[in-house]
Design a protein around this nucleic acid. Structure first.
Length: 280
DNA sequence: ACCCATGTTTACCC
DNA sequence: TGGGTAAACATGGG
């Protein structure tokens, strides 16, 4: 579910709901959710105030007083909700933050893939997941020249490379299929065979697509909701993802679904052709 | 019953 | 050592 636009939508919702709140107590119902010692996590966060919520790639960064940061990754199905303490607790709720005003910030995750970790603010950049992240997908940080140079060194297909978060951060399976379709690039194209023109088109499409998806509140395919338990609207704007056997919106050819790098991959066999060799 | 699923980390290989 | 790839994580839905 959550790729960058969904994580950003969650961040904005939480920012409105719980900013400035003091943590009265933390309950951890599924300790594996916490990287490190869950008791330590609970003890250190108690009585701290949430000052800011930031985001890096698909990671949420909860900034607390005393230089503490909770790094949270929602992975496939993680969600944050804000509930009254008296509301019934869902069976997939794994962490509960009691707020001083009587409400609770609850972390819910059907598949239990998500993780949360308490670190000293600033040191999150050294965590394995964050250390190798590429630039945020905005014009200020994501530069074509750098993107193209890195593509020249990658020995992978473009879809797998875009999913690994090192060229640029934030794309997941849905948006990768979308930006490759928009750019008329076959998902199995070798990175090294992309031209500077193709890299430029792809770069621009990545920036605009993710910005549009944020504006729409993200994409809900099966279960994504934001902090208000509201679904996104971008699923209505998808061009290829999930459109297997439906006509390509550009040329009418049936959209195909194949597997690339273990991931279901949608593309138009007419608009997106593999570059198999260079003819000089 | 079997296969699939929006993501990352780990183990293993070259 | 660095890069690439497949399995692992855990659960629900079609």
């Amino acid at each position: 579910m959550p790729e960058l636009p969904e994580v950003e939508t969650v961040r904005r919702g939480l920012q409105k709901l719980v900013l400035g709140q003091k943590i009265a107590r933390v309950e951890v119902l599924y300790p594996k959710m916490i990287v490190g010692d869950a008791d330590d996590f609970k003890a250190k966060l108690t009585e701290q105030t949430l000052e800011k919520i930031e985001r890096r790639g698909k990671y949420l960064l909860f900034r607390f007083t005393n230089g503490l940061t909770v790094v949270s990754h929602l992975r496939m199905e993680g969600k944050f909700y804000v509930k009254e303490a008296t509301d019934p607790v869902d069976k997939h709720t794994h962490v509960i933050f009691d707020l001083a005003d009587g409400r609770q910030l609850r972390y819910n995750d059907v598949r239990k893939f998500g993780r949360m970790q308490l670190v000293q603010t600033g040191s999150e950049e050294k965590l394995p997941g964050l250390a190798k992240l590429g630039p945020e997908p905005v014009a200020e940080t994501f530069k074509v020249a750098d993107f193209y140079q890195k593509l020249q060194k990658k020995k992978k297909n473009i879809k797998t490379a875009l999913l690994d978060q090192t060229l640029v951060t934030g794309l997941g399976n849905i948006y990768v299929d979308e930006v490759l379709w928009q750019s008329k690039i076959h998902p199995e194209t070798s990175c090294q065979k992309l031209t500077l023109d193709q890299a430029t088109i792809l770069h621009d499409n990545i920036i605009t697509e993710l910005a549009k998806a944020i504006k729409a509140g993200g994409t809900t395919i099966r279960s994504y909701t934001d902090a208000f338990q509201k679904t996104g609207a971008f699923q209505f704007e998808l061009d290829v993802y999930g459109r297997t056997d439906e006509p390509c919106k550009r040329c009418g050819t049936k959209i195909q679904k194949i597997v690339v790098g273990q991931r279901g991959t949608h593309f138009c066999p007419h608009c997106q052709q593999v570059v198999k060799c260079h003819i000089f």
